[in-house]
Design a protein around this nucleic acid. Sequence first.
DNA 1: AGCCTCCTTGGAACCGATCCCAAGTATACC
DNA 2: GGTATACTTGGGATCGGTTCCAAGGAGGCT
Lengths: 338, 338
Amino acid sequence: MPTLQDVARIAGVSRSTVSRVINDHPSVDPRTRRRVQRAIKQCGYRPHAIARSLATKRTRIIGMIIPEAVSRLFTDPYFALMLRGATDACNRSGYQLILSLFTASVDSKTMHDRIVHNGYVDGVLTANTCLDDGLVPRLLDTGIPFVTIGRHPDARVSYVDVDNIGGARMATEFLIHLGHKRIGTITGPLNMTPAQDRLTGFLKAMGDNGLPVPDALIVEGDFTEAGGRAAMARLLEERPTAVFVASDSLAIGAVKAIQGAGLRVPEDISVIGFDDLPSAASLEPALTTVHQPIEGLAQLAVEVLIDRLKRRVQNGIAVQRVVLPTELMVRRSCTRPS
Amino acid sequence: MPTLQDVARIAGVSRSTVSRVINDHPSVDPRTRRRVQRAIKQCGYRPHAIARSLATKRTRIIGMIIPEAVSRLFTDPYFALMLRGATDACNRSGYQLILSLFTASVDSKTMHDRIVHNGYVDGVLTANTCLDDGLVPRLLDTGIPFVTIGRHPDARVSYVDVDNIGGARMATEFLIHLGHKRIGTITGPLNMTPAQDRLTGFLKAMGDNGLPVPDALIVEGDFTEAGGRAAMARLLEERPTAVFVASDSLAIGAVKAIQGAGLRVPEDISVIGFDDLPSAASLEPALTTVHQPIEGLAQLAVEVLIDRLKRRVQNGIAVQRVVLPTELMVRRSCTRPS
DNA sequence: AGCCTCCTTGGAACCGATCCCAAGTATACC
DNA sequence: GGTATACTTGGGATCGGTTCCAAGGAGGCT
C-alpha cells in the first residue's frame, strides 16, 4: 500500500502538498495539483482512514445502538427498514455504520463503553430506547453527540420521531366515525415512548368524543405477534367492537386471536394497526393501519446526526427535534359495527 | 481524555511500561503493574482504539457486506437473524461490525472500495452473494480476508453454509414418503447458490425415487412472498399434489395463492418450505419446513473469520469451509395425497 | 528599482498508541 | 568480590496522515 510519502516522492513534492491535494485545499498551484493527481493514479494511492482519523479526530463512523430490551423484537421488519434507511443515508454521505445490538452475552455497560469510549465512532444513533434502560443518561454523561429515533423526554436529547399521538388519534377517530363506541386498545410496552404516545392519542380521541374507556379495554402488549395474540384473548372478554392496536405485529397476533375465537375481522371486530409494515397490505384481511415512514425517519436521523457532528466543530449545539407526519392507510380490516 | 502519557506521568513510569500493563505483557514488576493500574483507574484512562490500530494495523472491526441484489429482500426476518448472530459473535470476541448494505444510491464499486480500502476493517463477511454480481472476485483481488455465508464455487473462498442439498432432499423425500408423486417446486433465484442447491436436492430426491419432473413443475421465484404467490399461480395449472418451496417467504406466498384459488393446504396441496423462520410455526396452517440455524451460521462465520484474521499473522491461509446440518420441522402443511 | 503582498510550498510537530533495542538493576553463581 | 544472567524499564522510531508556521518567489504598485 503506497502512502502519502510515496506519492510525494513520485510527484516530486512534499507530503504537505499531497495532503492538500487530497483534501481539496485551494492553495495549490493547478499544475502541481495535476502532477500530484497523476502520481496518485499511478501508484493507486488511497488515503488511510485510520491515520487520517488519528490526526483529525473524526472517523466518519456512526454507531447504531439497539438496546438489549428490544433486540428480541429485532426480527420485526421494522428494524430492517430502519437499518436500510440508516445505511442508505450513510452511504450517501460517505459515512460508515457500526451496528451494535446489545445482546445478553455481554453486559450493556461494557458494550456501551466499547462503542462510545474507544474513539471509533463520531456519534451515536439509538433506536427504541426504553425509559428505564439507562442508555440515554449514559450517553448524555459521555457527551458524545447522539440522536435517538423516537422521542425521549429529557430536554437535552435531540431526536427524530413520527407523530405517534396524532397517528393514534387519527386511527381512533376513524373507528369512531365508523360508528364504534366500545373500542379497546392493545398498547406496546409502556416504558417506551412510542407506546405511551399511541395510548395518549387513543385516549385523547376517545375523550374528545365523549367515549368512556374502562381500564379493562386497555391491555398492555409487547410489540410481538405472540403478545398481540395474548392481549387480544383477554380483550375479547370485554366484547369491544373495534380495537386500536399499537403496532402491526401486535395486530397480526390480535387478528389471529379473533379468528381463532371463531369471530370475523372486520365483521365482528374491526382492527386497526400502526406501522404499515410491508406485509400489512397482503394480510387476510388487508390491515388498515397508520403508515409511518420508517426508512425516511432513519435517514433523517442520520442526517440530523451528521449535521450535529459538523456543527460541533463550530460549537453549535442546540437540541434538534423533528417530527414527521403519519398517514392513515384504509384497507379491509375495519368496518361499521353491526 | 487522558492518554498513555498522562497515566505514565501519574504512575511515575514511562509510556512503554503503561502500554505493557494495558496489553498484559508479562515482563512488568507486579508492584509497578499495580501502581499503573491504580493510575489508570484514577484518571479514567481508556486506550484510544484508533491510535492503537494505526500502530498494530488491526482494528478489530469486521465489515458485513450485503450486496444490492438482495438488499430488496432485506426485510425478510432471515437477515435480522443473521445480523443478530453476527453481532452477538462480535460482541463475545470484542469485535465491532460495520454494516454495509449496498444500495442504489452509491455504485457498488465505490462502496466496495470504501469499505475494503480505507483500512477500517480487518476482514469482511458477506452474505447471499449472487454469482454474477462480481463481489467475490473483487474481494479475492484485494486479498482482504473474507468469509461468505453460503457457499461460493471459487476454490479460494472460505465459507460457512448449511446443507441445502441435504435439506431439500430430506424435504422432498418426506413428501414422497407421504405418497406424493406429482411434486412441483418453486426455486429461489438460480444465480444464488442456495437456490441452486435446494433445486439440486429436490431433483436428486425425485430422481432417486424414479419420479419424473417435467419442466413445467419447476418455477423460479425470487425469495419474496409476492414471488411465491406468482410462482404458485403458474404452478397451479399443473395440478401438483405437493410443492417443495425453496424458502419460507416464498411458501407464505404460495399458500396464499393456493387458498386464494379456493384450494386447501394441506388437503388439496401439501406445501413444505425452507428456513423455519420464527413465523413459520404460527402460520395457518403451521408450515412444515426445513430448519436451518441462521443465527448459528452467522456466528460461525464470524468465528471462522476471526480465526483467519489471527492465523494470518502466522501465515496460515488454508481455505476453511463448514457446512451445518438442517432439520425437518414437521407441522401441519403436509399430508397424504387424497 | 525597491518594497509590499499574496500565493505556494516545505519542514516539523503532533495525533496516541506499539515495540524493538539498549541500559540499568538485582540475583546467582563461581 | 567479580562476572554472567535474567528481569524491568525507558528512549526513540514508527504507523500515515494533518496542520501550523515560516520561507521563497512572483507579481503589483509607487
